[in-house]
Amino acid sequence: MTTFYIITGVLLLLLMVPAVVRIVKGPTAIDRTVGVNVIGTKTAVLLVIIGMIFKRVDMFVDFALAYGLLNFIGSIAAARYLHRSKESPVGDRERDAKEAIQGASGEEARG
């Protein structure tokens, strides 16, 4: 059974390579963040499998839980940082539309 888990871990590690390629060449910053998120989740899974290989799952489960929690917090923080809005969490697009409507009606009133 140890051989099975070793093969699983190696396959997980090899399948992280496409995510690394996406991180390296992603066109936008959020693409890279998605790749980092995928790799972080898979690292938590990999920690559980490493625990199965070393037969110390009772210890590695806590590491995996902490790593998953940190990964989630990191993703949320990156998403809030890359969010374009500056004043309110509503988003710029909505505010732009409101300003455009107000500007148009103002011009009509003046004309």
């Binding site: 959020i30 963040t33 998605v34 929690l69 993703s75 949320i76 998403a79 890359l82 969010h83 374009r84």
Partner: peptide
């Protein structure tokens, strides 16, 4: 947590105008 972070990243990307 994984769908929540996916939703947050998607929202950030949409508001960035991608």
């Amino acid at each position: 947590s994984s769908p929540a972070s996916t939703h947050a990243l998607m929202d950030a990307g949409f508001d960035d105008g991608i």
